[in-house]
Every structure is written in structure tokens, then in C-alpha cells.
Amino acid sequence: MIQLVDIHKSFGKQKVLDGLNLTVEEGKTTVIIGRSGGGKSVLLKHIIGLIRPDRGQVLVDGEDITLLNDKDLNEVRKKFGMLFQEAALFDSMNVAENVAFPLREHTKMSNEEIMDIVRNRLNAVGLSDVEEKMPSELSGGMRKRVGLARALAMQPQIILFDEPTTGLDPVMTEAINQLIIETQRAFNLTCVVISHDIQSVFEIGHRVAMLYEGRIIEYGTPEEVRASRNPVMVQFLAGSIEGPIQIL
């Protein structure tokens, strides 16, 4: 279980997170929604220790990761996988080497064992015969699939998704959503997904959290969030320009 307790974070004079509290339930998909530039990615990077808060605790299985040194933090990170917005594949390596990378770094498996896992993970994300291709030869959707295969390589308990469907066409968006749902079920994962694609949010989320002005202002099941009367939530879901959310 992941708990964020009273997280404060500023960059210069800009306050991004302002006393944020959030609990991510184990074995469920929690989707964090909020306006662009509202601190969603910053929140995600706090969960995995890429950014340390100015104040507050990030508890992963009860352990406050903000207090850990690099070595202990790396041990905690082995529980995680992350799919970045543009997949962040290493462009100096082919697809197979990208997926194999964490295994080569952290295990003493033989090359055959590693390649078996690579093929298995690529199959799990619906890809085959792409092992030898370079990331630059892949489409956006394929890159995200390879990124997910790499995130799954070490059999993590938690996967973080940073806007997994941004920049994809509707068909590919649906394919990635289905993939997230299937992967979450198949590997019994705890997933944290950042998105502002409303349709995807309600499709994949067991829990939905709305981030606004540095705090979670609404949290619940998709049905509860959809029924919310909070004016910010209503405006956001309706995609209306009239309401409390200021357009900058």
C-alpha cells in the first residue's frame, strides 16, 4: 500500500503540492486526474522517490521512502515499474535489450533465461517479432507497449503510468486501456495512472482521485466521483470553460 501524508512541494515560488494526502489501495487501479501542469507528474515522481517533498511522508508498505539513502531507496524501487509518457526507451538499445535491461542489471540469470522472460513480457503486451527493432522504428503505441513490457520485466508489485494514452489515436487509446486492465488483473498489480482522458479514467480506474491546487479534492469509486457535486469536479468532467477552474 502507498500512502502520501501531508506532502508539500514548491519549485521556487511556485507551490505545486500543498498538504496533499492520498492512499493508493493494494491490488487496485487508482487514476489521478487534474488539469495540465497541475502537479500530477510531480505527485507520481514523489511516489517513486524521483522527487523528495519539502515536507510530508511517502509510505510504501509502511516505510517512509523520503528518509532512505540511495541504496535503500533502490531496494524499494525494485517493487515498482513505471511507464513514462513517451515510454523513455533507451534509444541506443534494441527492443529486446530494453526489456532485458533491468534483468541484466539486477539478476544473475543466463542469457537464455533473460530472453525467455523478454519474449514472455512482449507477448503479454501483444508484441512479437519486434525484438531486434530499434525504438526509433516503432510507432508511439508500440513504444508504450515495449515500455510496459520493460516495466513488467522484474515482476513489480506496483506500476506507475504517466499519461499512458496521451498522443495516441482513439483505437490505440482503447488498446492501451485494455492492456492496462488485463495486465493489472493478470499480474495482480497495484496501478497508479495519471490521465486527463475522462473516458479512459472511468474505464480503467477502481478509484479516481482529483488533484486541484495541490490537494486531492475528490476521491472515490468512478461512480462516486461521477456523482460528485463539487463544482471543480463538475466543471472538469464536463470540460466546461465556465466554473471555478481558471483558464490561464
Binding site: L50, G81, F84, E86, A88, L89, D91, F101
Partner: peptide, 11 residues
Amino acid sequence: TEQIDALAVMA
């Protein structure tokens, strides 16, 4: 392109 963050995330 977040490849350095990806390294850190992979411990």
C-alpha cells in the same frame, strides 16, 4: 526524454 529518470526508476 526521461531516459535518465527511467534508469533511476529501474534502481
